[in-house]
Amino acid sequence: MQNMSASVLYPLILIAGALQAWGPPMNGVLRNSLTNPWLASLVSFLPIVAFLACLWLCVPRPFPTLEGVSAMPWWAPLGGLVGAFAVVAGLLFVNKVGAGAFAGLTITANILMSLMIDRYGWFGMEVHPLNGWRILGAMLMVGGISLIARF
């Protein structure tokens, strides 16, 4: 996977992004059907846990090393919890604002935060300087989602 070229990676990432747009509306229906948003969140995560458990059982190696686990920052395992916040927000709010506005707001916020992560190298990421083109892109995202959310 590490040696995959951008010509293969970018289409896969675009497909993943397109599929991500399905999640909040699907979870909104799940929440309406189950009434309780916390139960809906749990039901939403169960297939993920089952799928990943099956994958791990089929391909259990490589095992983590003691050195790797010891060197892991305290916050590293919290990525799933951070993602759960987005799932719960989708369960609660996508039906109120619409799929386009919800996705646009979350993606725009994601881009803005990602630019900060790149700029400062947070979470062990390689630093990518903030330049005029990146700022322009961020401004266009904000302008675009403003139009989508308003109309």
Results as ranks from 00 to 15, higher is better:
Ala53Glu: 10
Ile135Ser: 01
Gln20Asn: 15
Leu81Phe: 15
Gly137His: 01
Arg134Asn: 07
Trp38Ile: 10
Val82Trp: 11
Gln20Ala: 15
Leu57Val: 13
Ser33Ile: 00
Val97Leu: 12
Trp133Ile: 07
Pro60Cys: 13
Val8Gln: 03
Ile111Val: 15
Cys58Ile: 09
Asn95Thr: 11
Met141Arg: 09
Cys54Met: 09
Val97Phe: 09
Phe93Asn: 05
Ser44Trp: 06
Ala99Arg: 04
Arg134Val: 03
Asn36Cys: 03
Leu147Arg: 11
Leu46Thr: 13
Val127Pro: 05
Ala40Trp: 02
Ser114His: 00
Pro24Gln: 07
Met1His: 13
Leu19Ser: 05
Leu115Thr: 12
Ala99Gly: 04
Ile48Val: 14
Trp56Ala: 14
Gly80Phe: 05
Thr108Leu: 07
Asn36Gly: 02
Gly98Asp: 01
Pro62Phe: 08
Asn95Arg: 14
Ala50Val: 15
Pro73Ile: 02
Trp74Val: 07
Gly143Phe: 05
Ser5His: 11
Leu92Gln: 12
Leu105Tyr: 10
Ala18Arg: 05
Asn95Ser: 13
Ser33Val: 00
Ala40Met: 04
Leu9Ala: 01
Val49Leu: 12
Thr35Glu: 13
Arg31Trp: 10
Tyr120Glu: 04
Gly90Val: 01
Ser146Lys: 06
Pro25Ala: 06
Phe123Gln: 00
Phe93His: 02
Thr35Trp: 06
Leu55Met: 13
Gly104Pro: 03
Gly124Thr: 06
Trp133Thr: 11
Ala21Val: 08
Asn131Ile: 00
Trp122Gly: 05
Thr106Asp: 00
Met26Glu: 11
Asn3Pro: 09
Ala16Ser: 11
Leu136Asn: 04
Ala101Glu: 01
Leu14Met: 14
Trp122Met: 08
Ser33Ala: 10
Ile145Pro: 02
Thr35Arg: 14
Arg150Ser: 13
Pro73Asp: 06
Ile111His: 10
Met72Leu: 10
Pro37Asp: 03
Thr108Tyr: 11
Phe123Pro: 02
Met116Cys: 08
Pro24Glu: 10
Val29Gln: 14
Gly132Lys: 02
Leu14Tyr: 06
Pro129Ser: 15
Phe123Gly: 05
Gln2Val: 06
Leu55Gly: 13
Ala109Trp: 02
Leu9Met: 01
Gly68Met: 10
Gly80Gln: 09
Asp118Ile: 09
Leu92Phe: 09
Arg119Lys: 12
Ser44Ile: 04
